[in-house]
Amino acid sequence: MNLTLKVWRQKSDKDKGRFVEYKLNDVSPDVSFLEMLDVLNQDIIHQGHDPIAFDHDCREGICGSCSMVINGSAHGPDKATTTCQLHMRRFKDGEVIHVEPFRAKAFPIHKDLMVDRSAFDRIQQAGGYVSVNTGNAPDANAIPVSKEYSDMAFDAAACIGCGACVASCKNASAMLFVSAKVSHLSLLPQGAPEKHERVLKMVAQMDKEGFGNCTVTGACEAACPKEITLENIARMNREFLGGFAVKRK
């Protein structure tokens, strides 16, 4: 198949950036989107130009490195899919594809399609953990956890921290990410003792990073490659308001 790619090229955060058009011929429908970019990059290098920079690593949908918006959708048109799992058979011959980086003030652009998502690490540092030192753990079966809650915690913990929620939200809000982290730990008895402290601190850090607010559009949920649900945001709101109400200092 033949394609026209319009790829966002930007040298650094300070540079202004623009779309550059590339024509691709004979793209195999069986290659992944990133492999298609690999092929394009090989051509670019042979022509003596700077290849397109993009983050990628595991290429099996779990590391959360991909950070592209394809035709307006984070990770492309398919649900529950990361860019690396997207295959070219999903596109039509002759299609024009816009490829842009995740855009948010809290995710400054490093180069081309590479963005800085360290804000997520800082949010995690603010309280996204259970305070247990190595060697302090009781036997793993000492505290039973209901299967229902364990499964719910897992559903939230499936978040791969890619930032597609931020990228797809019209407000660049990180609520889905933060709520997934908050829910994962607060749903388990191990994380419960710190649940109020945790949610208050993580939300405060989220706000500090300059993410937008939640308008409950559900765009994040639709874009999430791991299908994290809005229910987590409601839970986070609930726990935040509860924590805010009962916290003594």
């Binding site: 319009k6 649900k79 816009h98 855009r103 948010a104 003030k105 019209k170 765009a219 639709a222």
Partner: peptide, 16 residues
């Protein structure tokens, strides 16, 4: 929180 928008809007199942 987002000073620069996207060139294209999300479509179909990913649109809000």
């Amino acid at each position: 929180a987002r000073t620069q928008g996207y060139a294209v809007d999300a479509a179909d199942q990913k649109a809000a």
